[in-house]
Design a protein around this nucleic acid. Structure first.
Lengths: 106, 106
DNA sequence: TTGACATATCGAAATATAACGATATAATAG
DNA sequence: CTATTATATCGTTATATTTCGATATGTCAA
């Protein structure tokens, strides 16, 4: 399988790169009530809701939402909706796969 | 060390991604006299001159030249000038390093 | 030194991305 | 059902990238 340019497009923006980092350790990076909620709701998978990422990023809600959707579309993130909230978390296997692809095919 | 967004910017373009692929096996991809020259001159390191990449890419010389310079600046390529020609080749250790960085830090 | 060729750089026009506010959609609480 | 809250989508404007042609720089051969 060829390396997909869209993954690199998603990664070619500092905020989106930051989001990926923040999602690595949500408990450290995000300190809000909804983080508690998510830990309960998503069975320790560590997702973060859009609001929390909006606060952290300091950009408009619409901007962050479309960033997240774009990162999900190219496989970097996984989203799960629970009631009003959409929780986003890293797609670790996809990220590891990217590392492998770069080593083998780039 | 943090992951640098500029490497992803360099990779977020299909032509630049292609160039990286072509440079993987110059003898297969590029069939021109200057390829012979480079093999002799660069001691089997397999660089390709700008002209050959211009032909292959089908874009203006100025476009390809600036792509190459950009990819060199962010560490993906190495250039070496021999007379009139500038030969570009992959910076394999940097590319491997990127793969590692993604696995560990992204 | 001059001419020819390879590459690099510059300036401009077309296209894409970034980012916003407004609005639409979805879900819950009352 | 309605108001409220969370997220997604749309339309717009500012900025960045793409790509070109023209030109500058560097190198070699005559």
């Amino acid at each position: 399988m060829k390396v997909d340019v869209n993954v690199f497009k998603a990664l070619s923006n500092q905020t989106r790169l930051d989001i990926l980092q923040w999602l690595k350790d949500p408990e450290r990076e995000i300190t809000s009530v909804s983080c508690e909620t998510v830990r309960f709701m998503m069975d320790e998978r560590g997702g973060i809701c859009v609001q929390d990422l909006v606060k952290k990023a300091g950009l408009a809600q619409s901007t962050v939402s479309s960033y997240l959707s774009m990162m999900e579309k190219c496989g970097l993130l996984i989203s799960e909706r629970h009631g009003k909230w959409t929780y986003y978390r890293r797609n670790e296997s996809e990220i590891l796969g990217l590392s492998e692809k770069i080593k083998k095919e780039l």
